[in-house]
Design a protein around this nucleic acid. Structure first.
Lengths: 213, 213
DNA sequence: CCTAAATTGTTCAATTTTTCACTATTATTT
DNA sequence: AAATAATAGTGAAAAATTGAACAATTTAGG
């Protein structure tokens, strides 16, 4: 029972550290220092140590961290030691792209089904993933013990899809629709708003914001 | 010459306010209070006012904000009163999905070209957008006065694509590859890491993190 | 075996961001 | 015309986050 509140930024950095460590491990590197991790992922060394310190002591003073060992610890922290079945709602371009995105598979996410309302898409397969009608959502979530849903539908339907996912006891939603959606507080929600990201860039360009790395 | 440092979170909220105001405007709503904006986008009312206060006084005390007026101001702040030509590197699923993503067009981003190394894709059109070979990148960036590039290639090529964009004087890069890339400090860079977002969710699920809305 | 070099874990200070509480202003009602 | 209600703008407090400094620990070398 973790009692401390972990900054979300810390969690997202852990995810990045993890990917970096995975790369190092494949290269056969055995130990690494916080400074080298920091250098590799573009943050400060103190930040790296601080992030890890929330969860325990994984390094050896004077030596550094064992790559494999630290990697395993972080995967455990992130809950990535088991595979996560995921459903994607919306079999349009974005939904399809997400299904084919290797990054998900590599990190242990397993897209078990897609859903759409378009009769032309229903019951077809996209790279081995079947597109189901929305009616099947509840059954499949239950059958495959799905905890996470990805919303990739137009903004105007995002809320109703979210409601449907919630009704079917999903634990977490990753929303790609450019819409503000509301869910009960026990449901985890994250928004990936593609336009917002471009707009931060335009803001920075027109306001001549300096990057501070 | 803006002298104040604006939190990035503020900028991203402005983008969300902007979308919300656009919706209100379409509905014909004339005025709105900070409280209603806050309610609509899921933040605090003081936060809304503070965010706006960085840029000026846009409201009327006792009354609220004029929807059209405030919306225009925010678009101006974000640099969205002109259209932005954008290039997308990588004509795979993700690149294609991004090109077809309506959210970009709606917000004034205009994808003028895609690039890929696959001879099967080169010189083909994807929904009216031509896929060019990488050699053409420099010419098109210059010709169309492109300031922003989107990277949608596999992680292992992300850095070299970034270097290429930088060499061709791009101002800002939106990187979708799950890789840490380095650019000179005068180039704006944002990473949208899809896996990281899912991993924050798994972390929250396994650690039973409470949402605090 | 002792000293020096490397590097973690941790404390404390600095900074940044958010929230709260209050003041000022406008419109409305009596 | 005065009183009341609504609501923006703002300064200060609080909270969160980051960064710097340093003590503790390990390894390696003389």
């Amino acid at each position: 029972m973790k009692m401390f509140k972990i900054p979300e930024a810390t969690v997202s950095r852990l995810s990045v550290y993890s990917r970096f460590l995975s790369k190092l491990d494949k290269k056969g590197i055995i130990t690494i220092s916080s400074g080298e991790i920091a250098e590799g992922v573009g943050v400060g060394a103190a930040q790296v140590r601080k992030d890890l310190a929330y969860f325990g002591e994984f390094g050896t003073r004077g030596v550094g961290y064992n790559v494999k060992d630290l990697h395993q610890h972080i995967l455990k922290i992130l809950g990535l030691t088991t595979s996560w079945p995921v459903v994607v709602i919306g079999a349009g371009n974005l939904g399809t792209a997400l299904c084919l995105y290797d990054g998900f598979r590599e990190r242990g996410f397993n897209i078990v089904a897609m859903f759409d309302v378009d009769p032309l898409k229903i019951d077809k397969e996209i790279e081995g993933i079947t597109v189901y009608s929305m009616e099947k959502l509840g059954d499949i979530i239950k059958e495959k013990e799905v905890k996470m849903g990805v919303i990739a539908v137009p903004a105007e339907y995002a809320q109703q899809i979210a409601d449907l996912l919630v009704k079917n006891n999903i634990c977490a939603i990753l929303n790609f629709a450019p819409a503000v959606i509301k869910v009960p507080e026990e449901v985890q929600l994250r928004n990936v708003d593609l336009s917002v990201n471009l707009e931060i860039l335009t803001f920075n360009i027109v306001n001549n914001v300096k990057n501070l790395y």
